[in-house]
């Protein structure tokens, strides 16, 4: 079996620093100065799944992102980890996209790639959500644009036979099991695998791998009505930082005294302690 796999990736501000995100009170925009940009963490699990499929069978792994021009860096990282090629869909016309417009743009990027390569993608893998927006909607919507079955929150992908896979998706208190064949769009979870580290060799090799940027004119089949801000049915309104501050009374004393005060608070708030 040969599998041609596309992996959708996204640059995100490092989630470790989200407490530093602020809102510019005048311009009403999000300020994220000084927060480094990363390859969205769970996208690495999607990439790892793609690389494992390529190793187990044969095939190709193509990383694709719709992002501002500086996203070349995270695509270079995807190449260093092991993707064969990378494509960045970047144009002002794609800007301001919500999940519907984003998935539409990725859909047309994939279609264009398929036409150029003369094959169609068997698997389109995405991280199940991005760390920043975390809408978790793109993989399902991409599946709909492509007309392929899609599963979200995939934590297990096992071969039944070379053409058939047993897939598990997370549920509240359990999981759901599927039998599936390509083509498929999968939103994968962090439990699916353990992403490999980037090797020095990988970084060296990545320098010579193709990384191409495509703009609006490279996707002539895409319709303006579905692209960018104009193609986004959702529009952002006001933004604010929620005020969740509480009074913060200090409980002090010996451990026994503190424990006693906690018991008192529990009782005062309707929790039965000792009947």
């Amino acid at each position: 079996m040969t599998y041609n796999i596309a992996v959708c990736v996204k640059p995100v501000p490092d989630p470790k620093h989200y407490d530093k995100v602020t809102i510019d009170p005048v311009r009403k925009t999000i300020t994220r100065t000084g927060i480094p940009t990363l390859l969205n963490p769970v996208d690495k699990n999607a990439l790892e799944a793609a690389l494992q499929l390529r190793e187990q069978y044969t095939g190709t792994v193509t990383a694709i992102s719709m992002a501002p021009p500086d996203a070349g860096e995270i695509l270079r990282e995807a190449l260093a980890i092991g993707a064969d090629e990378a494509y960045l869909l970047s144009d002002r016309a794609f800007g301001g996209a919500d999940t519907l417009a984003t998935s539409y743009t990725l859909f047309h990027g994939l279609k264009k790639l398929e036409a150029a390569k003369g094959y169609s993608f068997d698997f389109v893998l995405c991280g199940c959500e991005s760390a920043d927006g975390a809408t978790a909607q793109v993989s399902s919507q991409l599946g709909e644009w492509l007309g392929y079955p899609h599963l979200w929150n995939v934590f297990s992908l096992q071969e039944v036979d070379p053409k058939t896979f047993s897939i598990k998706t997370k549920l509240e208190n359990g999981y759901m099991e599927w039998r599936a064949q390509a083509p498929l769009v999968l939103g994968v979870s962090r439990e699916l695998n353990k992403p490999r580290f980037t090797s020095v060799m990988g970084i060296m090799k990545a320098k010579n791998k193709p990384l191409q940027v495509w703009g609006r004119e490279d996707l002539p089949e895409a319709k303006d009505e579905f692209l960018g801000l104009k193609g986004s049915p959702t529009q952002p309104g006001e933004i604010f930082t929620p005020d969740m501050k509480r009074s913060g009374k200090v409980l002090a004393g010996t451990p026994e005294e503190i424990a006693g005060r906690i018991v008192t608070i529990l009782r005062a708030n309707g929790v039965v302690v000792g009947g």
């Binding site: 975390a134 909607q137 644009w145 979200w152 998706t169 997370k170 939103g187 579905f226 959702t234």
Partner: peptide, 20 residues
């Protein structure tokens, strides 16, 4: 787990917006 996958798929079919 189910609604997060199904909802956006329905939205995509209707070409409408969904707040997550």
């Amino acid at each position: 787990a189910t609604g997060s996958a199904l909802g956006p798929a329905v939205a995509a079919r209707l070409k409408t917006g969904m707040a997550a």
